[in-house]
Design a protein around this nucleic acid. Structure first.
Lengths: 228, 228
DNA sequence: TCGCCCAGAATATGATCAAAAATTGGACTG
DNA sequence: CAGTCCAATTTTTGATCATATTCTGGGCGA
């Protein structure tokens, strides 16, 4: 079976060199992060095996990782579900996000190249379009990409890891809130962030980021208490 | 096929109702947290299957969780190892630990009952004995238990989860540092913490906790740079 | 030194066993 | 007589294992 196998022959396939459990993980993670799975919704292994047309082992491993991420919740009796955010959780999220994300954007301010600021600006423009068009899914994805790209330039992998975990916690609820209230009520702090980045003013950026966090979390809080 | 099947046949097994993957996870986690696995050490699935006398699936799931915890590291090519702390990581750990642990102890100060302060004091006494006796393993375990018990009373599960993950990152290196320098050089800030708790003075407790974090992390930094 | 091949480890599958939830049947009470 | 609650059965789901398959890395030969 000595296939000459030019590794260049991989045109139609997407980069499916990733192991199956990794692909399952990425897909599930995105579904949770962007609210395609509702808070409280039960997740079954066998259901995912069917839905994703995968084997059992990759699904199990992906679920373990997501539980460790806080994106899924082990309900004691072997049951797994998307956790429902409690009102008390909001305060913790606000504090942690403010602390860590502000530090991240400060670090990013001094490190990010101008070309990457341009990319951020393009993401923000696309984000505006999504808002104008009422495209909630697009809004959530672009908003995440904006912050994630910004954080990536902080050169602080441990802090980014912590923040990613926090976003996974409120992602599902954010979707619910947007679905109920729409996206229009989010004042756009991204413009302030971009301005601060251009001026290389870390204080300005951190302040804008803090307001962005606060406004987002208060929105979620309002959504949670209204259904209570 | 109504097999009478006496399920009572389980004499040698310890009363371990926990699933196997959970047990494997707990054991591995403790080994990493308390430095029984050295930084940089490679971890193989089959090695653990033999060492823990378990099946392959539970070991795989435990490893996935620990990778997500940051306690293990996926080296790209199917290889898994205990991550080595880099010097640059220390700054991130210091910032994150200061931010989150100080908030945790502030919250704990107003919530912890007196009886639990007594338990903390007992832990601290045992900790002094471990230090006096040069019992590094005991020191590491008791130090973790002290902080963990304190944090548990903050009623902030999300923040505790973040901190746990941070401790997993420097645990292996802390063991190395203690093994090299001994435990004597750690000035004991726990007494200050206990005093602040008794007085219900959150500022005092937070200050002591901050110093505890700083001293511990600087110790680790010194250990890392000396071998560099 | 470079390329090929092979040993060994990791990945992935399906089967099997055990446990828990859902359902149904029956008995008891108002 | 009807409604409700308890319990046993059924069925769905999770946990584990044995095994086949794939991939990586090192050794061997040219």
């Amino acid at each position: 079976m000595n296939v000459p196998n030019p590794p260049s022959i991989a045109p139609p396939e997407t980069a499916s060199k990733l192991p199956a459990h990794e692909q399952v993980y990425q897909r599930l993670r995105a579904q949770i992060l962007f609210g395609e799975l509702a808070p409280g919704q039960a997740v079954t292994i066998q259901g995912l095996v069917e839905a994703l047309d995968s084997g059992m082992t990759p699904v199990r491993e992906a679920i373990r990782r997501l539980i460790s991420d806080g994106a899924l919740m082990f309900q004691g009796n072997r049951r797994v579900s998307v956790p429902e955010l409690r009102v008390e959780d909001i305060d913790e999220l606000v504090y942690a996000r403010k602390s860590i994300e502000c530090e991240l954007v400060r670090r990013a301010t001094t490190r990010i190249p101008d070309a990457e600021i341009d990319r951020l600006e393009q993401l923000d423009l696309a984000l505006d379009k999504a808002i104008a068009g009422g495209d909630i899914a697009g809004y959530l994805v672009l908003n995440y990409q904006f912050h994630h790209l910004l954080h990536a330039h902080a050169d602080a992998p441990i802090l980014v890891d912590l923040v990613d975990r926090l976003w996974l916690r409120f992602g599902p609820s954010l979707r619910v809130v947007c679905g109920r209230f729409g996206t229009h009520s989010f004042p756009d702090r991204h413009k302030d962030i971009l301005e601060g980045l251009r001026k290389k003013d870390a204080d300005l950026v951190a302040l804008a980021a803090e307001r962005d966090v606060l406004q987002g979390m208060e929105q979620v809080r309002a959504g949670l208490t209204s259904t209570d």
